[in-house]
Amino acid sequence: MQSFLLRRFGVALLTVWVTTIAVALLTRLVPGDPIEIMFAQSAGATREQMLAMQARLGLDRNVVAQYFLYLGNLLQGDFGRTIQGGQPVLPLIMQRLPNTLWLASTALVIASIAGVTLGFFAAYKKGTWVEHVLMTSTVMGISIPPFWLGLILLMVFGMQLGWFPVAGAGWHALVLPAVTLAATNAAIIGRLTRSSMLEVFEQEFMRTAWSKGLPKTTVLSRHALRAGLVPVVSAMGVQFAYMMGGAIVVEYIFSWNGMGTLAVDAILRRDYPLIQGFILVFSVVVVCISLLLDVIYAALDPRIRQGGDS
């Protein structure tokens, strides 16, 4: 377990470090003059302001110096200031982050419960109409664009039926965005669970379990589900990352006050300091949550727990 988790921790550190490099040098990769692009939309920018920004981003130095300038600022908690409004980036993002996390984790819980239930029954009822219905619904689930699904839900449940608020904060307003965000991933988790369960049902240890004369529920829960969930749990970190990504679109539709809306605006306005801060915070959050989920995964699979990674 230690060697597995140590390795995951190493990857996490590496990822964060590579992110800082990529983010610091992001502006260098922009075709054309990044400063001009940045200020193109704010009409009243002066020559002095532009030069100050160039120095601030280290664009007047060489690449290495620029990186260390950026890293030094980061370590002091200085993520820079936005082009428009000149607000400090980090507080702006941190203020929105809880909303996004709240949305993504609610959606992950919904998607996991729905997906595992769906996948388990599809596998257990293999070859029956139950499986066909469930599997067809998952193909639909992964084919519907989330942004369209969100708009439809908003129209039907928000406008027509008026069951849920169209926008706002609080748990009541959370339902529609969370369901929208969970739909695709419930389908993905459902398919993953089904194929994993099907594989487990075919395993010889299941034949052994059936041959013991135990109650059906015991065989299914203790032997099948536990073994079948191992690959599902191992994919949970990736699932969460997709929730975070998907949240960007969903927040935009439901005017949810998260960091996704902030990021879309920033990209449209080419507000590079804000974009940089967003990418950095986003990947740090994803890395931390993945690490947490890895611990759960390691606890579930003894082969990993005992360091025997093969």
Binding site: Q203, E204, F205, A209, R222, H223, A227, P302, R303
Partner: peptide, 13 residues
Amino acid sequence: FQEPMTSLNPVLT
């Protein structure tokens, strides 16, 4: 059964 490795549940003691 034939294959004792696969006939025992890998995630239970």
